[in-house]
């Protein structure tokens, strides 16, 4: 799949933002006043910034509001609802903390639940797609949620929790990569089933429908980066998991924590780039891609 920068920014930043807001909503002794203001500001900038960047890849962004209508069947629509409910309830919750030093716990819990729901629904947009076997698995959702709460814990300064969650998320990521490499083969979809011609013999794509590219080949038959896939996996795991873990284990200093956060975000972004760049859409078979 084409790794569109807008989508990578969206899933990385909003995942982190909703992760932070989740912890703020759950906090039994939340910050108040200016401290609360800055924590919530960071959470909202990340979450809303990510959501805004996702609208850049729409053909008709001016109609984005219509995406709220189909929550009965569409995960994208459900995501829109979860995000709004999370942001509105935590907005009110933050209002209480910042201006009235009031802790409206129930509102916080509601917001926290919907933060997780937002990240989960985002992940389901990808995990539901049978056409991309690498994504079509429950572990895709587990991985999205794990990175989100791990990043949120890191940003909100929960050192011990962050340590544990980052290791869990990193482990999930490594396992997801390894299993993901087998899923296209396991799906049973091949050029033979795509064309129905496998009963006659070995099928090979002979001529594409045209010499140039088209929307499908640009969007779904993306191949660049596979060769570097291994290296990038290493880079992602070092940046997102190993560096933050080492820095958190060191004696605490603000600048170390800042580096840990930056490294973590960069690592997750690389992993997200790979999430798209390595994902094989079955339509590629028709175009002669993915042939052994």
């Amino acid at each position: 799949m084409h790794p569109a920068p807008s989508i990578i920014a969206f899933t990385t930043l909003s995942g982190l933002g909703f992760g932070l807001l989740f912890w703020l909503g759950l906090d039994a002794t939340p910050p108040t006043g200016w401290t609360a203001f800055f924590f919530f500001l960071i959470g909202y900038v990340l979450a809303i910034g990510g959501l805004m960047s996702s609208t850049f890849h729409l053909g008709r962004p001016e109609r984005a509001i219509k995406a709220f209508t189909q929550w009965r069947t569409s995960w994208l629509s459900r995501e829109a609802w979860c995000a709004v409910i999370a942001l509105v309830s935590l907005g009110l919750y933050a209002l209480g903390l910042v201006f009235f030093s009031a802790h409206w716990a129930v509102l916080g819990w509601l917001g926290a639940v919907f933060c997780l729901a937002t990240v989960f629904t985002t992940s389901m947009i990808y995990a539901q797609l049978k056409t991309v076997p690498r994504w079509n698995h429950w572990s895709t959702s587990a991985m999205f949620v794990a990175w989100s709460v791990a990043g949120g814990a890191l940003l909100s300064g929960r050192v011990t929790v962050a340590l544990v969650l980052i290791v869990v998320a990193g482990g999930l990521q490594l396992w997801w990569w390894q299993e993901g490499d087998k899923r296209l083969a396991d799906s049973g979809t091949t050029l033979a089933t795509a064309t129905g011609l496998g009963t006659i013999g070995t099928v090979r794509a002979f001529e594409p429908p045209h010499t140039g590219s088209n929307y499908l080949t640009r969007e779904m038959v993306f191949v660049v980066g596979r060769r570097h896939g291994r290296k990038l996996r290493m880079i992602a795991i070092v940046l997102a998991m190993l560096m933050p873990v080492l820095l958190l284990l060191a004696p605490f200093a603000h600048w170390l924590a800042a580096i840990a956060v930056i490294s973590h975000v960069a690592g997750v972004a690389v992993a997200r780039w790979l999430f798209f760049a390595e994902a094989e859409h079955v339509v590629g078979l028709y175009y002669g891609a993915r042939e052994a």
Binding site: H57, G59, A194, V283
Partner: peptide
């Protein structure tokens, strides 16, 4: 009604949907 999100084209295994680059709709 189409916002040109492209998700339907991702969901189709056959490559039967194309987003029009000029109009931004599926």
């Amino acid at each position: 009604d189409c916002i040109g999100c492209g998700l339907c084209a991702w969901a189709c295994p056959y490559g039967a949907r194309e987003l029009d680059a000029a109009e931004g709709v599926m």
